[in-house]
Design a protein around this nucleic acid. Structure first.
Lengths: 208, 208
DNA sequence: ACCTGAACACCGTTCAAGT
DNA sequence: ACCTGAACACCGTTCAAGT
């Protein structure tokens, strides 16, 4: 679909034959990972890619728009990672929860700065629509897992949002504590196992 | 419209007889609350307080130092709020947990931007020492609550860090989800009750 | 001691102009 | 269409100099 006659060998002066937008996002993610959010500057991004400092504005209205787009790709990658893990999980609720929790925490550890960005996006009425949709793609996985667990009798009854919220909270909170370095290393060691066991007890039906 | 009644009883030229540091922190907290972290600028702070833009550097080595100090005051206020709530709590573990969780979430809602800052501080070997101490002042409350609960037989046995980490995680995660606006209003409504019940089940001893 | 004023090297954003 | 170059109004940080 892309330019049929475009030479692939790079001519330095017009290297970005239409994919400057993608190149900006890729580079932004690299510097976010390597140097943190404070080091993200449109002008430096442009410099790195060999375009003028005004070029990015053709693809992102302002800096926030680039951050929004970056968060969006983050939610998409998170969804892909979790869907992959879910596909490899066993049939019981305990197995699915275990696999999803581990995949989420793995993603958080490998993309700490990006995850932070994802949850700190300003909620413009416009951008948040797309973001919420992307975020829901993976939380739907958690929700359907709980729903299935209820059918199997492994999860207590109750409205989905209610049973799901606490599980979402432990997950999100543990990932946040670990990536913020708020847990001493000893606690982080087996902390994840404890969190999973804790969540399972919290989800379990009342004894009869 | 503003000009005529200016003087107050403050001499505009040297109002800060030694408490510029405190004034900077107070004003920083206000603009953090009102206009968000992106709007925090040393130069604007100085302008607001009627000093030169170089004056803040006498009290804070750089911007990060001011943010660190701001986070520190945040942890101190959080500790005070939780200790107050804890003092008013009942004798059972369930009552103490309820009171602490609600106080934490209240603090998170009233100081969303500040809490964000508190947990996103760069961990310089130096600043993090004081920060960790301040953070531990309130988490010690949670830990001793759990310890007491174990003595009362309301909380399952196990090393403190392990039992405490999941509780800390739900708390932190729920507060984060709410302040980030990631929960639909219906879910936020009774979400807190569900989170507390969930945590209690997670802490409960195994049935015998 | 505490603060000022100027200077430096950066920003994000806008806009006429080039190709 | 896509990008450039200059311009504008901001930053944080440093430092000689004032009081």
């Amino acid at each position: 679909m892309a330019g049929t006659l475009m030479p692939m060998h790079t001519r330095p002066s017009s290297y970005h034959h239409g994919d400057l937008r993608a190149a900006l996002l890729t580079r932004a993610e690299e510097t976010l990972r390597e140097k943190g959010p404070a080091a993200l500057s449109l002008r430096e991004l442009a410099r790195d890619l060999g375009v003028s400092h005004a070029a990015p504005s053709r693809h992102f209205r302002d800096k926030q728009a680039l951050l929004d787009a970056l968060a969006l790709t983050g939610f998409e990658r998170l969804a892909v990672a979790l869907e992959g893990a879910h596909g490899r999980a066993g049939a019981s609720f305990a197995q699915r929860l275990d696999v999803i929790v581990r995949a989420y925490v793995d993603f958080a550890l490998e993309n700490a700065a990006l995850l932070d960005l994802m949850y700190s996006i300003k909620h413009d009425p416009e951008a948040s629509e797309a973001l919420r949709a992307a975020a829901e793609r993976w939380s739907a996985l958690l929700v359907s897992g709980i729903e299935e667990g209820q059918r199997q009798g492994e999860v207590r009854e109750g409205p989905l949002e209610r049973v799901g919220v606490p599980v979402f909270a432990v997950l999100h909170g543990y990932a946040g504590l670990v990536t913020a370095g708020m847990l001493p290393p000893e606690a982080a060691e087996h902390g994840l196992d404890e969190v999973i066991a804790f969540a399972l007890r919290g989800c379990a039906p009342d004894a009869v």
